[in-house]
Simulated assay, not measured.
Amino acid sequence: MENVLRPVTVLGGSLAITLIAGWAADLLLRRADTRHPETPLWGLLRRCRLPFQVVLCTSLLRGSYRQAGTLPDHSFAVGRILTLILIASVAWLAVRIATAAVDSVYARYAAAAAAEDEARVRRVRTQVTLIHRVVTAVVIVVALAAMLLTFPPMRAFGASMLASAGVLGIVAGIAAQAALGNLFAGLQIAFGDTVRIGDTVVVDKEWGKVEEITLTFLTVRTWDERRITMPVSYFTSKPYENWSRGGAEMTGTVFLHLDHSAPVPLLRDHLEQLLPDIPEWDGRAWALVVTDTTPYSIQVRATATAKDADDVWTLRCAIRERLLSWLAAHHPSALPRVAATEAVPRPGP
């Protein structure tokens, strides 16, 4: 009877201690969050309750299962399983704590600087995202290595491989050259501030916004909702356009090819009148000039400013549409014409 009661008592006591400790920790974090609402860390740390309880319960069982006589015929297997669970749960808890810390830093910074510098907020968001992924990757790798080292054959295998570590290092370096290049390129992007999440970019003649940056690839969401995925090393080795660098304001350009008789001064006056009715125009500047001429037409360039890339696209479309509609309605002769004559019939029978 004692052989049954002792394991049950140890298991029940461990579960009770775990539940009480989890409840107490959650209560303390809730009170700290109430007293310090300006710091979201305490509320975010409440997400660590479940992994904390798993770590605590596994630690208690791991330290007492032999004395409790739990499955004495399989004590080695029980100890191995508890050790693996403990390593995995510690890694889980470490990832949750890192996530809470990163989210807390970003939330506080975003709340303080959102109204002042949106570009800096997006830069910090990119950096903390990549830092979180690096920490998560390191914790997972260390946890997997620790779990493998609990098996004696793996320890012997690791010792035997150390003798040829130099050759293996060279082979692995050559094989992982692209992956390592993307890894360091991702860190360079994060801390070099070359491109950030939310930036408007033009890559391979495709216009879109940076939606996601990982350690190995970057995703651009195009205007027609396609996703372009490319290695992050592209942004450190090839030129691309970043419309969000140095401020989001932009100047939109519209080119019209018109007849030589086009009333340019009247067209300029009409542009000045229609711009206040276009909500995307930010009121900073505008212009309309003749930039080129050919034997058949002239090239007129209209420019206007907008607060960001999304508005400048809509502004360009509105200007182009309204100027052409006004010319077609009031000065149709100003639109380009193609001179043509009837075909001469071929002489002959």
Rank of each mutant, 00 (worst) to 15 (best):
R316F: 00
T9W: 08
A175E: 10
Q127S: 01
A21W: 00
Q53N: 10
G166I: 01
D33M: 00
V138A: 14
I17K: 07
A113P: 01
A145L: 11
R6H: 08
Q273H: 09
T251P: 01
A343E: 11
A309V: 11
G348W: 01
D117Q: 04
I228N: 05
V220M: 03
T39Q: 11
Q53H: 05
S297C: 06
A163E: 10
R108V: 08
V254A: 02
V4R: 08
E118F: 02
P279Y: 01
T219H: 09
T294W: 06
K209I: 05
F217M: 07
R268E: 09
F52S: 01
L168D: 10
H132D: 02
S14V: 02
D310Q: 13
L324S: 10
T34G: 15
V344A: 13
T200Q: 00
E249S: 04
V54F: 05
V289A: 12
T9M: 10
I20Y: 10
K307E: 08
I97A: 01
R31H: 15
I228T: 07
A334T: 07
V102F: 00
S164R: 07
N3H: 15
S104V: 06
P72V: 11
L11K: 05
R125N: 14
R66I: 10
W326F: 13
V202D: 06
H74I: 04
R96G: 01
D292H: 15
D310E: 14
G12K: 05
Q188K: 08
A172Y: 08
W313Q: 15
I278R: 00
T200F: 09
T236K: 09
R245C: 00
I197W: 01
R62A: 06
G246A: 08
L323G: 09
L335W: 01
P279N: 02
W223R: 14
E249N: 04
A24P: 04
V344Q: 13
L324P: 03
E280R: 03
P72D: 08
A306F: 02
T305S: 10
A340D: 11
D292L: 07
K238N: 05
D308M: 10
V232W: 05
H74N: 14
A156Q: 11
A178K: 11
L275D: 07
L335N: 01
T34A: 15
G158M: 04
L266G: 00
T314I: 05
Q188C: 03
L71Y: 05
Y240G: 03
G192Y: 15
R268S: 09
P347C: 10
V264I: 15
A21N: 04
A175F: 07
L56H: 04
T291R: 12
F217C: 00
L266H: 12
V90G: 11
H330R: 13
G348M: 02
G186A: 13
H270R: 14
R322L: 06
V121R: 00
D308F: 07
F151P: 03
Y106C: 02
R120S: 15
L266M: 12
T99W: 09
M147E: 08
I197F: 01
D199H: 03
R133S: 00
